[in-house]
Nucleic acid binder design. Structure first.
Lengths: 238, 238
DNA sequence: CGATACGTTGATCCATTTCAAGATTGGTGG
DNA sequence: CCACCAATCTTGAAATGGATCAACGTATCG
């Protein structure tokens, strides 16, 4: 758990807010990174490749430190692109690094954030390696539902996220045409309905089961340092 | 670059050595992790799922900190399994964490190691999402070649690593039967030959091109803290 | 009211899985 | 040293998943 002093230090460090429009490239691949951002509102994707053959390798939700992979390396191996309009809170990379290295529980919190990201990435690798398209989407939707739950952005019957079928295809490694049919199958099976970014599912367990999803990988040990930071209206897990 | 004092502190911390046989489960998924290990000799894979539907989500080579993802979380979301006989150097998790938090350049080195891992993981996600089987193997072999080069374990014409076709299939998300045909295609194209763990490729550039592999993601910024630690005969990048 | 992006559907071809069987290799005990 | 066993590798044929090409519906927003 973050100590109150650490929490306020972080809130102060991330005081500067910023907005960006849909499709903005927030950080370009291999460009020097000097600021670390917390995603406050909206969604961001990690993208590798150009329009013709772009792949979305991660999806970030409010509360995520989006350019954390650059903390040690100084750059990202991918573009960060806004999925819909976004709001960020920025902090100088140097100052966050110093804070993480000098303050035990902040260092711990940043480690946990980084490694939960790694866990999710491995599960994406799993998803692509093992499942067919309709099960990949089911799994993705299940994972997102849990992650959004953690920051209070999901309802009991579903949630909203501005993804097109093209985006889903880029995430699940299929063509948009096939993604369309995969979504059709989920509807036909009564597992999930996704229209213009609105995800609804009558039976969450059935959806998770179809996507071979188990939520356990999204949780740190109970004794791990995790706290809640407040940014204006929003409170963010960290 | 690691300062000499930091280097000797690490060498002392990882003084305890240990060996394990092929297929040993070194660390089980979701079990508490109290020690962090550097892989000295041999290879280790991160495995999710049982024998029937197991997936290899990462492959670790000498020099890698194999249970680093547990540094913050306290456990791993996957099993660590020896691929062939291995030698490890172990350190208590607490002491490494304290060292990383109190000593700037060690903290930096551990961050870099962790984030290079993350980069590789994203590129695996990419590999599975975009490429067909024969190109996936080509890419995997290219990546491994570079990683082994970094620790002096690859030759000019190839390298050795004890992977069966079943292992390759588990890595590339195919059936072993199809993996066999994919390897056959690489041979037929004159790009790579893999027999009993011996990888040879006459034209490295051609192999990398076929696998759409660019080595840039494997490198940290030049100013990043990277050093070499010596463990008996072996010297390890860090 | 028309652009324009997004979603839907059909037909054909290629990649991959699945089921089934056989060949090669490395090691082990007699 | 040979015979045998078990694991690994190889090959074939049929069925499914997914890509590709092409066309058409349907929002949504100036």
């Amino acid at each position: 758990m973050l100590r109150p002093g650490s929490r306020s230090a972080l809130e102060e460090l991330f005081a500067e807010h910023e907005s960006a429009a849909d499709q903005t490239v927030l950080v370009a691949a291999y460009a020097p990174v000097t600021q670390i951002s917390v995603l406050i509102e909206g969604y961001v994707v990690r993208v590798i490749g150009q329009d013709g053959d772009r792949t979305i390798v991660s999806l970030l939700v409010p509360g995520d430190l989006i350019d954390l992979p650059a903390l040690g390396l100084g750059h990202l191996d991918h573009d960060l692109v806004a999925l819909g309009p976004v709001t960020l809170a920025r902090a100088p990379l140097d100052r966050l690094r110093d804070l993480a290295l000098s303050n035990g529980d902040i260092g711990q919190a940043v480690w946990i954030a980084s490694q939960l990201d790694g866990t999710i990435q491995r599960q994406w690798t799993l998803k692509l390696g093992r499942l067919k398209a309709s099960r990949r989407v089911a799994r993705l939707l299940s994972e997102l539902w849990h992650r959004l739950d953690m920051v209070g952005l999901a309802g009991p019957d579903g949630y909203h996220i501005p993804m097109t079928q093209q985006d889903l295809a880029d995430i699940c490694g299929t063509t948009p045409i096939h993604m369309n049919r995969a979504l059709g199958e989920l509807r036909r099976l009564g597992l999930a309905d996704l229209r213009r970014g609105h995800v609804t599912a009558p039976d969450r367990d059935a959806l998770e089961h179809y996507g071979a999803f188990r939520a356990n990988y999204l949780k740190a040990r109970p004794d791990a340092a995790v706290g809640v930071i407040r940014f204006g209206e929003n409170h963010i897990l960290m």
